[in-house]
């Protein structure tokens, strides 16, 4: 009986999770009648930054401005803009910052190539480090024991056997 109640609770929890997953801020009254065009608007909206929250796309954000931009985006598409033109319309007003995927150009070189450059520099540093260590510990650093060391070694070994 108790197990049954628990199972039912677990089941309901899972059901709620399943429903809660794909929630987006896009409101029913914003959705276009043409499903193909709505799909284009969704694809674009996911890549456009909400300027108010700054780390959410306009599709994810409940901010007023995000809603205005979603509506504007759909109006541009209905008016016959291509995806690129609709995106450019917003870039002209808000700058590259409105794009969640920054374009590859001279001002964004550090952003795009910086991580790879750091990785290469780190890799090179690691290679140099290990090479130097094996070099100093390698055959060049080895020499036979001299007489004093031989005697000390013998003494240590014999002590060991006695103990």
């Amino acid at each position: 009986m108790r197990l049954g109640v628990r199972l039912r609770g677990l089941f309901m929890g899972l059901m709620l999770l399943a429903v809660a997953g794909p929630v987006m801020a896009v409101q029913p009254d914003e959705v276009l009648k043409d499903p193909a065009m709505e799909a284009r608007a969704r694809a674009l909206g996911r890549d456009l930054r909400c300027m108010v929250c700054q780390n959410q796309s306009i599709d994810d954000s409940d901010a007023d401005l995000a809603r205005d931009l979603r509506v504007l985006l759909r109006q541009r598409l209905v008016a016959g803009d291509s995806d690129e033109q609709a995106k450019q319309y917003l870039v002209d007003r808000y700058g590259d910052y409105v794009l969640l995927r920054p374009p590859f150009k001279t001002t964004t070189l550090v952003l795009w190539l910086g991580p790879a450059a750091l990785l290469l520099a780190g890799g090179w540093g690691a290679v140099m480090f290990f090479r130097r260590r094996t070099a100093s510990a390698g055959p060049a650093g080895e020499r036979p024991l001299d007489e004093t060391e031989q005697r000390r070694l013998k003494r240590l070994l014999s002590n060991d056997r006695e103990g």
Binding site: D64, L65, D68, R93
Partner: peptide, 13 residues
Amino acid sequence: RDGRVGIDFGVYG
């Protein structure tokens, strides 16, 4: 009223 001129200026608040 609809904030459209704001968007044209790049207003975000």
